[in-house]
Amino acid sequence: MPESAPRNYRSLDPRSLRGLAHPLRMRLLNTLRHDGPATASQLAHKLGESSGATSYHLRQLAAHGFVEDDPERGKGRERWWKASEDGTSFDDSLFTDPDPAVRGAADLFLHEVATTHTQEVGTWLGTAREWPDEWRRSSDLSDWTLRLTPAQAYELNQKVHELIESYKDLAPSADSADSEDAAQVRMHLHAFPRSTD
């Protein structure tokens, strides 16, 4: 991923990667980032898990600094959790770490990211007809094959990331007239070389 981590993004190191690289932990963190604060019970219901499992994995995420208490919401024994950062950046050096556990965690992490992207696209395709025409026209499943050097591919990724980040400032506030037409929009970017053999 490009070097410049935008906004409140966390760069994974070997320790934090090992703490995050678990399918349920990644789903919990994504849900808190996309849908906002929630309790372990609410997350369990949403993700089809037991509240014991979500509670345990939320505590593990908290131990690694990915989630924290949301003091504005909790009442009595009810503990609300929120994501500590907006996103995560992955450094390629994790693939070549001398510790095989770190390299395995890197593989698992990226495969889970790819699985999540596939599930999100599948959900969109299965529900697209429930959305208004303007949202269906605004969606995109494009792909290109370019012949680039590694430096050109890196530069292209940087420019795409910067463009996407620039749209975060354009989001309508919750009380603006445009907010009724706004929805969360997921952007997936996959760029990788392929063999032509």
Rank of each mutant, 00 (worst) to 15 (best):
N8M: 13
Y9N: 06
Y9A: 07
R10C: 03
R10L: 11
L12Y: 03
D13G: 10
P14V: 01
R15S: 10
L17V: 05
L17C: 02
R18N: 07
G19M: 03
G19L: 05
A21P: 04
A21C: 12
P23N: 12
R25P: 00
R25V: 01
R27Q: 09
R27S: 08
L28P: 00
L29T: 01
N30G: 12
L32Q: 05
D35Y: 14
G36N: 05
G36T: 11
P37W: 05
T39C: 03
A40M: 01
S41G: 08
Q42P: 00
L43D: 02
H45C: 03
L47N: 06
E49K: 03
S50I: 10
G52Y: 09
A53P: 03
A53Y: 06
T54S: 07
S55F: 02
R59A: 14
R59C: 07
Q60G: 02
A63Y: 04
H64Y: 14
H64T: 01
H64G: 02
G65M: 04
V67S: 04
E68M: 11
E68W: 02
D69Y: 12
D69W: 14
D70T: 13
E72M: 10
E72C: 07
E72G: 08
K75P: 00
K75L: 04
W80H: 09
W81I: 05
W81H: 07
A83C: 08
A83D: 03
E85M: 04
E85W: 01
D86T: 11
G87T: 10
G87V: 07
D92F: 13
S93G: 03
L94Y: 02
F95D: 09
P98T: 08
D99N: 14
P100F: 14
V102L: 11
V102K: 02
R103M: 05
R103G: 06
G104F: 01
G104D: 12
A105G: 03
F109P: 00
F109M: 01
H111Y: 07
E112F: 01
A114F: 01
T115C: 04
T115Y: 03
H117Q: 11
T118L: 13
T118V: 11
Q119T: 14
Q119S: 11
Q119M: 15
E120K: 07
E120W: 06
G122Q: 15
L125E: 13
G126K: 05
T127L: 09
R129V: 08
E130Q: 15
W135L: 13
W135M: 08
D140P: 00
L141W: 02
S142A: 12
T145Q: 10
T145R: 06
R147G: 08
T149I: 04
P150K: 10
Y154G: 06
L156P: 00
L156E: 10
N157Q: 14
Q158D: 15
Q158F: 10
I164A: 08
E165T: 13
E165N: 11
E165F: 11
Y167P: 00
A171F: 04
A171L: 13
P172W: 09
S173P: 01
A174F: 13
D175N: 13
D175S: 11
A177W: 05
A177D: 10
D178A: 15
S179P: 01
S179N: 07
D181K: 15
A182E: 05
A183Y: 06
Q184K: 13
H188E: 14
H188L: 13
H188A: 15
L189D: 09
H190M: 14
A191W: 01
A191T: 12
P193L: 07
P193Y: 11
P193I: 06
R194C: 06
R194I: 12
R194P: 00
S195E: 14
S195D: 13
